[in-house]
Amino acid sequence: MTPLLAAIERERRAKLFFFVGALILLLGVLSLVQNMLVSFILAFVMYYLIAPAVDFLERRGLRRLWATVIPFLLILILATSLGVLFFPLFLSQLQTLVKAAPQYIESAAALMGRIESQISRYSAVVAGDDFHLGLQQRLTDWVSTNAEHLPTVISGSLTVILLAPFFAFFMLLDGRDFMRRLLGLVPNSLFELILNLNHQISSQMGGFIRARMIESLVVGFIVWVGLVMMGFPYALLLAVIAALLNVIPYVGPVVGAAPAFLIALVNGATNTELLILLTIYGTAQAIDAMILVPFLVAKIVDLHPVTVVLAILMGAQLGGVVGMIICIPVFSALKVTTIAIYRHLTHFRN
């Protein structure tokens, strides 16, 4: 190797080192500073939701700054109005549920005990006689621990609610410029690959997040309308839970519907009421699967159901509920990256 080529190689390695270093530093800051990672994830969600509106206004001739400010102001007005309208109701339902939790847990454990004794009549006891008592203890502990942490969770949520729009605003305004500067650190030999990879991941993530958000909103809205019409308690709270958990494929809709069925069973609901409840959640999922998924999710990265379940389990292990929600986009990004790197290694080079 000539001294000149050796110098080029040294420069390439230095650039790669700084690029990877900058990425690691960024990830380190995000994961070490409290509330930063969640704020950033939420900011990314907001970014992908608002970006089409910003691009649309820019296409209409507005400068990037105004094209960013206007949708932000509109969303702020809309969010404030919705917050004023629904947040007190949501909070009161949450408080009522927390207060009534011991009663629900007791009834749920009793119900479980009855089911256990029914099962033991037909077969050998699988989980032991005191399974329902253990479950009652675990649920009571879980609720009391979470109730204790509620002020911390609320203050953390407020930080996230304030930080996320702040980050999202600057991502929309200067994000592309920042990315260009970051890409400037990439060595020449890898530049085209990384640029293309960034574009692919970004467009797939955009489609994925927008589709999932619309799905969640529609599912949440149908569940809310249905429960209100049925006169079911905690309608808003249960609709929010259904909408949030709908983000998790396959498992989410089932877990999202479980609290409503548990409340109905504990309250001694009739078979007709249970059937109506099943119809509400079933309709929401049917509309999602038959109308929204074919039209919206067609472009989304296709992950095999087994991969999805594995990703959810890993996400839950690593990051709890947040991990479960973000694991699918993260896995999709990893899939796109792996395929692109594989193609680069096998097809890119002659």
């Binding site: 000539t2 000149l4 080029i8 260009r180």
Partner: peptide, 9 residues
């Protein structure tokens, strides 16, 4: 994107 190259790169 502005990229700079050394002779022979």
């Amino acid at each position: 994107n502005i990229r700079t190259y050394r002779p022979g790169e």
